[in-house]
Design a protein around this nucleic acid. Structure first.
Lengths: 192, 192
DNA sequence: CCTTTCCTTTTACATATGTTAAAAAATCAG
DNA sequence: CTGATTTTTTAACATATGTAAAAGGAAAGG
């Protein structure tokens, strides 16, 4: 397990250099969680108190609207996966996290992590940057859904994240793009 | 000007306590910018290197898509207003910032601010929290546009930010909600 | 290998929202 | 106050996307 963490932390150090002490403290907080395809990492309804990264595999955040499942977010190798609207507000989350394939997560409990911020400035900086990047991503996503047609959104996904199309069933992609499966299928048909 | 800043910083201290030294350093970086209604604070096309807050008044972030102006964000009293996709990536922004009424901004240049982060942990923490909050807001916004009808989006705005309906011309609200003016007008008609 | 389940496409039809243009209402400037 | 400009509403029509149901394909489990 320490091996898994070490290799993952070396990825984090590309984002923000960390002192040996910080790495050690972070490592002692972190754990590795392995789940099979379709297993649930976090249930809907609980307040989120854990920060995850996907180390290997793929997962997604989902919720229900009018009984229909909607995919809000995809996470692949090294991606941060958190339910920010719960983690940062201490309100119960209406969203869940589920594996799209066998997946290995790095798991860090948020309370002790936030406490570490006090004594280890570099750790807080690392997470400041991670949140900052996540924020930029969501801003871009808003741009994409706010005023683009379904076809434009699909084309943008195809251009920016072609790997998603390989890995993820179309029904999840459809709701991620804010459209129905039928609509997505129609668009794909019209493009070929 | 120092008075304006002091009163604004006391607001920031509600978010994160700051040492006198930090306040002083922050104050020396900050300036006050006053603009009239419809004046432009930041032009489209330049890389964004400034962090703003609206101290009094109201402003919005806009961009053009197919020649049509789209409003991406509204900022009122005390709101942070930044073009994150440029500020945090050093890429030119396709967005501008314009005043919706006579507005007083607090302006902080990002480079020296980020340098202050090194020596003043509490300032970095303040901005970490500000970005975190902005992130949560955008996540909620995605939820709102991803799979809600135009009417649901309008009703949500009415419920969560009724003040916006008071202050902001409907044509800006329409594009903010991702719909046309005509559609918004139709919806408002059908509700009364 | 076969059966079952799940995923994707197709069809037909319904509806929400967009487009264009014009009229009505509100705001602004002289 | 008056005319000009801007904003909002209304109308008629076009179109993208949704809904429901069925069929075809692909994957999974025994």
């Amino acid at each position: 397990m320490r091996q898994v963490l070490d290799s993952f932390f070396s990825y984090l150090e590309n984002i923000q250099n960390l002192t040996p002490s910080s790495i050690d403290r972070l490592a002692r907080l972190s754990s590795v969680v392995r789940l099979n395809k379709n297993e649930i990492l976090q249930q809907i309804g609980k307040t989120c108190r854990t920060i995850y990264f996907v180390n290997h595999g793929a997962a997604r955040i989902f919720y229900y609207k009018d009984g229909l499942e909607i995919t809000e977010y995809f996470a692949f190798e090294k991606d941060l996966i958190i339910r920010a609207e719960s983690l940062f507000t201490n309100q119960p989350s209406q969203k869940g996290i589920i594996c799209m394939e066998d997946t290995e997560f790095i798991s860090i409990p948020s309370e002790p992590l936030f406490s570490l911020f006090d004594s280890h400035h570099d750790i807080e900086r690392l997470f400041r940057k991670l949140i900052q990047n996540a924020y930029v991503e969501t801003v871009r996503r808003i741009e994409l859904i706010q005023f683009n047609t379904a076809e434009e959104r699909y084309q943008a996904l195809l251009a920016n994240h072609p790997e998603v199309l390989q890995k993820v069933p179309l029904k999840f992609i459809a709701s991620y793009l804010g459209i129905t499966q039928v609509s997505l299928s129609r668009i794909r048909g019209s493009l070929s």
